[in-house]
Write a protein that binds this DNA or RNA. Structure first.
Lengths: 74, 74
DNA sequence: ACGCCTTGTCATATATAATTGACATTCCCC
DNA sequence: GGGGAATGTCAATTATATATGACAAGGCGT
């Protein structure tokens, strides 16, 4: 899963409003929020910008984030 | 541009070796390094894992990273 | 000089992301 | 209890990511 819906709602945007802002169809936002497919990098970046966040926050799996911290902490 | 080539070389991997590791064709890695197209999110995550880094490091545009810092710093 | 590995690139084919239009359902407001 | 906005979802189409096979060029060791 990803955190698109969470960040979209925090900005009080509908799926349609967000889709218009980044120039895609409403269905595209819906499918991404429900993890029905695999969006392109450009689209992920547009989403992150529109939602005032970044790629890791929206899409980096928490399990991997934890693994990476272990790596750093030793 | 992105930092895939930089991280791949740091691990002394060929395009072919990296492609095999993440289960895609060599051409796919080549095209991504040369920014010839727009990879999928799953592929970006696989790349980030294989290169022991994360999405922001590989793909987040420096201009956006700077903008986000401004936002935080005030 | 030869061979091997690496990289860039082409052309064709297949899988899938993304669009468009539509319909049903739920929720909220009047 | 009727009307609109928001969401989930379907079918069909278009755009494009990715695979496969192949070839040329440069680097490096022998």
């Amino acid at each position: 899963m990803n955190r698109v819906r969470e960040f979209r709602k925090a900005l009080h945007l509908s799926q349609l409003a967000l889709a218009n802002e980044i120039g895609v169809a409403r269905q595209t936002v819906n499918l991404i929020e429900n993890a029905k497919y695999n969006p392109s990098l450009d689209l992920c970046i547009s989403l992150a910008q529109a939602l005032h966040t970044d790629l890791n926050t929206l899409f980096w799996p928490p399990t991997l984030a934890a693994a990476k911290e272990d790596e750093q902490d030793g």
